[in-house]
Design a binder for these strands. Sequence first.
DNA 1: CCTACCGATCGGTAGG
DNA 2: CCTACCGATCGGTAGG
Lengths: 193, 193
Amino acid sequence: MEILVKKSRKQQIEEKATKLFREKGYAATSMRDLAQVLGIEAASLYSHIKSKEEILQKICFRMADQFFAAWKEVEKEQGSFSAKMEKAAIAHVKVITKDTDASAVFFHEWRHLSEPHLSEFLMMREDYEGRFKTIIRNGIENGEFEKVDEKFMMLTILSSLNWTYNWYKPTGSLRPEEIGKQLANLILNGLKK
Amino acid sequence: MEILVKKSRKQQIEEKATKLFREKGYAATSMRDLAQVLGIEAASLYSHIKSKEEILQKICFRMADQFFAAWKEVEKEQGSFSAKMEKAAIAHVKVITKDTDASAVFFHEWRHLSEPHLSEFLMMREDYEGRFKTIIRNGIENGEFEKVDEKFMMLTILSSLNWTYNWYKPTGSLRPEEIGKQLANLILNGLKK
DNA sequence: CCTACCGATCGGTAGG
DNA sequence: CCTACCGATCGGTAGG
């Protein structure tokens, strides 16, 4: 049973903008494009929002907040570093699959943020990536993981997790939790029998 | 010893454009930006190129050609499917690391291609992805690989290989061949000891 | 949420 | 490779 909540005009604007930013890119999306999708004039958008970039900021920082919020689940895991990595993969994939449009914008369009937002964004990303690196480092020191370059490994793991925004379909057979588990399994155990 | 070859103006334009397209995105890069970097007027660019999109087309299809050319090395491999996958990873990473700017544009800006180039591009990508899927499928049928969804696995593998454009530095300690080997090793055997 | 409009900038052309 | 310029479009504002 689906509950229909009436969306505010502002919410509608942000949703449609997210979709357009994903499809055409932030720079190539005009406020007139956005207005047309909503059936209003471009000038009318400014009754609800301050600027085009404000929309981008909302999308990027809301996604960032969700990644950090999801990490709380990871911190509860007290088992092995493999178990921690699996929890991190699941948490990460869950956030992405909840809104693949916003995720696409988050991953690709952040560079159009102006200062000081750009610097803030990059600092948050560094913080988040550091958490994955810490799991890898601790797992290596512990003897649980192979000796690999932790930055190299972190980037490789995150790239495969991040890529889910590109092919995940809510109508598909794999649930987000299952996708996270399978990706963690690949990362930890590999494709070979 | 480095051999300095005099670059044609057209080559210079394409190189600078590649860098700008990567940094700012295709849509956000103006012909005036590009002209300024070259120290000429925007109108002068059109003595050497037909249009802004022509530059994007050159970048995207040149990269595609290189990925296909590199695949010839993969076809020579007559060993196991693991060996084939390693060869594919090395070939793929070699192409990316040869020009990370062009790779970034190839991965992110292709959607700004107009028809019929866009359709042609997507067909080539599908062909290329199919080759990875075939290795995976054959490896599973052969009993060499775990039973996984081949599309899911192909996308995951390619995402981790593709991501190298983002962090590879020619001055770093890892050579492209070594990066390909390590990524293949992770894909095949995982992080766990 | 609209009409009317702003200055700035866009990709590109004409003609030399 | 330049000057001079085109029509189109941009993000955004004033005033209702």
